[in-house]
Each structure stands twice: as structure tokens, then as C-alpha cells.
Design a protein around this nucleic acid. Sequence first.
DNA 1: TCAAAAGTGTTGTTGATACACCCATGA
DNA 2: TCATGGGTGTATCAACAACACTTTTGA
Lengths: 232, 232
Amino acid sequence: MNLAKPNYSEHKKFHVALDCIIFGFDNGELKLLIHKRKFEPFLGYWSLFGGFLKSGESLDDGARRILSELTGLEDIYLEQLFAYGEPDRDPAQRVISVTYMALIPEHRYSQEYSRRYGAMWVPVKELPDLIMDHNDMVVKGLKRLRKIASTQPIGFELLPNEFTIPQLQSLYEAILGEQLDKRNFRKKLLSMDLLVKLDEKDKSGSRKGAFLYKFDQKKYNKLVNNGFNFTI
Amino acid sequence: MNLAKPNYSEHKKFHVALDCIIFGFDNGELKLLIHKRKFEPFLGYWSLFGGFLKSGESLDDGARRILSELTGLEDIYLEQLFAYGEPDRDPAQRVISVTYMALIPEHRYSQEYSRRYGAMWVPVKELPDLIMDHNDMVVKGLKRLRKIASTQPIGFELLPNEFTIPQLQSLYEAILGEQLDKRNFRKKLLSMDLLVKLDEKDKSGSRKGAFLYKFDQKKYNKLVNNGFNFTI
DNA sequence: TCAAAAGTGTTGTTGATACACCCATGA
DNA sequence: TCATGGGTGTATCAACAACACTTTTGA
């Protein structure tokens, strides 16, 4: 073999897939969007949203394409997590899969898409058996979500634009899997000065109603430039 | 197209490469092991240690194989970092590359291998231009190293089995890129009760000599099982 | 009028930081 | 004897955890 000028073609090629771990939050529960797989092997079994990488697109582009094809949504939070490549992970053929974590406010995902793709939101605590190594992917994704959510303000990606403090707390409790003290939580959040209080109240959760807030992205960006670190 | 039973073969395949970001520590400096690339394109240019994934092996196995081929070392710390897939990242042909971070105690890497592969330890602060997106990979790798080193006891992977507290501190200073107070550092480290003090002193660094310590992996494992969190 | 969730402050504890001097030794 | 790096303790401050009662309102 001529070491100096080998042709890449002597090396094997592989299918590359992208699998999306899609988190949502509703009714106090952290959920995952899964669907029934549309092709063999494992046709009809619960699976993450996935697809194959195409020639002209980057990994990020591919994940974004798959997500928007299957949900109709653009501009959603998406982040690469991990590459899976056990030789026998897909019984049909060798596939390298790169996972992405996506955060979707549940109300933005339409019933129509849900019907069209046989998709369902399931609480992460009651996750059914998924195909291949998809359950491992979710476990790893959940760990990453916890880590990221406690060091960056991504929780807001899972809520409507306007939300209440109790909603936000309930979201963090679901993500972190533990109860939080409401006084400490509120104190901490408001002390970071990232939320804008609105005049309006949301009365859906209680008779008294809770004030709505918005996350101030610009202020956050400024703070970060000055060395600020978000923590919950 | 029959959605129910598509054949994978309708999808494109890609070369998959593994690139190793190899950190070392010597003389108070954090270093990176790079070498002159042995094939076109970019023959003779500085590059990370890399290679192509083979059919039967997992990503981890592939990274481990490449590392052991190029260094002669087994049993070294290795962890997957990130997948790179921009369509034009390799001008010759489309290649998806998965990076791994490796930690090698510098004294374990032999001159012989260094000569054989044209490899060199360079301080991360004075990194030359590397091929393609390898500089990006290193930047990302360094960030991950900082994060991991401050939450898990992996610093020891970069030192000899027996080391002194000042050595350890100097390593952490190099990784974190900041000076640390020696009293606080020592206090914190010893309070975790993970180090075993030996009777011997290392006199290479000073006339007085500093006591040698060993990291107690078993004790650490036990502590972790009880919910212990390492932090520097 | 009452049930149910929203909202509010203080205190104690713990962990992080800042800081200066003596010790042991080989040259 | 002196220059060099090793080794030690305390005081202050900030962040976090624990904790209980009042308010509002629709039914």
C-alpha cells in the first residue's frame, strides 16, 4: 500500500442517520415525542424521529430538516448530543446515528402532524420500549437535558412565550426530577433579572391567578458578555 | 416510493473518520499531540491523529485502535466528544468525523513512536494551524476538558501514578487557565479524602521536596455510589 | 366561607475566597 | 546563609437551604 497517497475509496462507507430526542412539557410532566416507525425493520414499532443524512447537507441541517418535515416547525432549539456506532445496532444494515436534542413547546405541535405521522407525546417516566438503542439515547439525552437546563436558560424553550413562575418551577421540577422550594426558586430566578413581569395574570392554574413573565433574551446576551453564568 | 419498505440502499453512504484530541501535561504546560499527515490531501501538514472507521468496529473501538496504533498505548482515557459533518469540511471527499478526547501521561509516550509518526507535543497555547476544521475541534475539546476536569477526577490521567500536590495544582492551573491559591487547593483536595499520602518525597521540584500521593480509585468509586460529587 | 394556589422574608449553615508566615534543604 | 519551593490556619463573605403564614378569588 502506498501510504503517501491512498485513495479514500479503499475505506468503507456507512449510512449516517440522525435521531431526534424531542422533549416537550405539559401538565406538569416532561414528555417525549415518539412515533410508529414507517419502514422495515421494526415497521410499526415506537421509535424516535429519525432519518438519513443526505449528500449536500451538514449534520445540523439534516436534523433540522427531519424535524421540520415531521413537525412542520422551524426555529426550534436543537443541539447535537452523541454519535452511536455499535456495528450491530441496526440489524438490517450498519448505520451510524447522531442524536440531537430538540425542545418543543407542546402547544406548537399540531394534531394534524401527530395524526399524519402516528406521533405521540409520552411522559418520560412512562417511556415504552423503543427500537434498537433508542432507549439508551433517551437516557443519555435526559442526562444532558438536566445538565444543560441547570446551566443555561433553555427551559424557556419548552414554555409559551409568556409563562408564570409556578409554571416555570414545575417545569424545572420535571426536568430535574426533584421538588424545589418555591420561595427560593422565585428569589433566585428574579434575582438574575432575566424575566420581565407583565401586567396580565394567567388564571388557568388557580383562582387567584399568577402573573405572566417573559424571558428577556437581549438582557441575557448582555449579561453573558459580562461573564454572567445562569444557574438553577 | 413505497414508504412501507424502503431499502436503505436508496440512501447515501459516507466515509466516517475518527479524530483524537490528545492532551498531555508536562513542564507546567497543557499540550496536544499532533503529527504531520501521511496522505493527501494536506500531506505533511499538522493534523490531529485520525483514521477511518472500519466495518466491524464500533466508534469507540475505532478510536481506541487508532490511538493504540499511533502511540502504542492501551488503557488510556478516551471519551467521545462531537461529530463534525459540514459537507465541504474535507475538500477531497465527504467525510463525517467523530472526535475523541484522550488523556496521556506524557512520559508514557515514547520517542520511538514520535519519530515513527512525525508526532510532536505542542503547548495548546501555541497551537499551529491544523488542517481542515481540526483547530475548531481542539477549541471545543479544550472547553470540554475544562468542564470535565472540574467535575470528575480525570486530572490524574495526565500525571504519573504518584504525584505531588504542587504538580496536581499546576496541572489544574494549566487546564483551567487560571492561578489557584495553594492553601485552598490543598485543603479542598485533601478534604475529599481521595488521595493516599506516601512516605516518599519527590525532590525534583524543590530542595525541600514534596510528598507523593496516589489517587484512590476504589475509594472514589465508593463515594460516587453514595452520591459524592467531585469538584475542583 | 372555604379550598386552592400565589405570593412573600428571615435565619442558620456551609462552602468559597482571601491572605502571610515558617520550614526544609542543597548549593 | 540564603534562595527556592513546600507546607500550614483563620476570618470574612456569599450562596444555599430550611421554614410558615397571608392574600386572592371563584365556586
